[in-house]
Design a protein around this nucleic acid. Sequence first.
DNA 1: TACATAATGATATGATATATCATTCAAATA
DNA 2: TATTTGAATGATATATCATATCATTATGTA
Lengths: 153, 153
Amino acid sequence: MIHSKPINNIDKICQQKGISLTQKRHNIFDVLLSSMIPLSAYDITDIYKNKFVTSMPTMSIYRILEFLTGSGLVHKLESTNKYIACSHLQCDHEHTNAQFLICNSCSEVEEVALTQELHHQIEVGAEQKGFKLEALQFELHGTCKTCLKKQSH
Amino acid sequence: MIHSKPINNIDKICQQKGISLTQKRHNIFDVLLSSMIPLSAYDITDIYKNKFVTSMPTMSIYRILEFLTGSGLVHKLESTNKYIACSHLQCDHEHTNAQFLICNSCSEVEEVALTQELHHQIEVGAEQKGFKLEALQFELHGTCKTCLKKQSH
DNA sequence: TACATAATGATATGATATATCATTCAAATA
DNA sequence: TATTTGAATGATATATCATATCATTATGTA
Ligand SMILES: [Zn+2]
Ligand SMILES: [Zn+2]
Ligand SMILES: [Zn+2]
Ligand SMILES: [Zn+2]
């Protein structure tokens, strides 16, 4: 099974953003894109070996993950220590904030943009405490639509 | 320096909540309460040894941390893999959700309750995706009041 | 006391992540 | 083309965070 949002124009996107995507970086991104669920660096090591026959050291994968997250192509889920391809690469809008709906049952993740409204409210709330926010990332755990249906049977 | 909110009546609180706080659990809680910043299980191991002269194996500390987080006395910050005493033990209100303002500069954390309003909005947003939320925990990174002041000098 | 249950200790190991130095690759320049 | 240089990747070691399992100790109850 493959990711719900195949990205064909990733190279064009990177060119536009000034991101230099080497073959290996491209491969790591492909591994993440092809996965239904977030992966750890060590998960990626295993999948990479199968998918590309040749193996890449996990430490290189960490480095590439760092590059990809820095470029905004990939997100790290802090609550699970796993990595996931960004779902909003096709969109024009900048998203300095993201919200992840993480299913505790099947591990699938839906990435949704935080509304401006909500972002603003949270920012103001923090400001009232004298706190200056950096990029927001919300990780919401629960049960997804599909798993809820299964449970109700 | 000690925690801004010393808790004297912790034993009474636990009694009321039906939490059995052994001496060692109490000690671990004290370590967290006395710290300005969140601590890892291994941090606690070191501090415990100094503070109580006798040493406790880190694995026991993990077990006690599990108990304390399960009881709601302590929170785990997922984004930093560290533990912090709950700041709202004195309050009556149930807080199934929490928001942490984490300073990237000095590591201090302020725990603030999410407003019902905001909680509701987020819940509704998730529901629209067919997603059923469990307990919310938001970890907001940025710069605290004190550090902002220092920076402006 | 005798028993049962909960709490803690000891040991091993798994999982995640960073630091550092060496090597390779690829673009720029002579 | 040959040379230089910086970026990317590989190799190795080690730090950090966490769980599993079995043994032992403490605590409450019949
Ligand atoms: Zn994204
Ligand atoms: Zn699911
Ligand atoms: Zn709390
Ligand atoms: Zn600060």
